[in-house]
Amino acid sequence: MSLVKILEIALRTGRVTRRYPVEEPLLTPEFRGSIEVDPSKCWGCGACTKVCPSNALTLTPSGKGLVLEYFVGRCVFCGMCAEVCPAKAITVTKKFELASKNLRDLRSRVVHEVLRCSVCGAPITAEAEVRAVVKVSPITEEYVALCPRCRKERFTKSVALRIGASSGPS
């Protein structure tokens, strides 16, 4: 009896199989796949690396410059990076066909030029970030290309000078 009934269910349902890869995958418009970083927008500020729960995004200085690396092999596809990105450089795509024969192909990098201190030569941060910051909050040009230490020094010196000028010996 149950056999007849289950047959009835099967026949009425018909074929449900999605014949992927010949047919389209069973994706909904909301699916979160791998992310893409737009190098022309990225500042190299590293906000994304700070929220990434699995450290799939890392920002490390190297000989080439400041490198933002995305290792999709560790990504948990939460999309938090796209939410925090101040430059809107990260987009969440619907890509899921990420199979690779080696781990190397799962990495993508954006290399940023590093701005160096014009006084002591110490690396400050990614050049693109400095440009972006200058755009929103104009900093006096003489301070832009200084590392925090040199900037402080110069600032203290100039303040001291000014104070010296106004409250000098009468």
Partner: peptide
């Protein structure tokens, strides 16, 4: 295989 290793330099100012 669709994915490839990518390394792009951010455009300089």
């Amino acid at each position: 295989q669709k994915v490839r290793e990518v390394e792009v330099h951010a455009p300089g100012g």
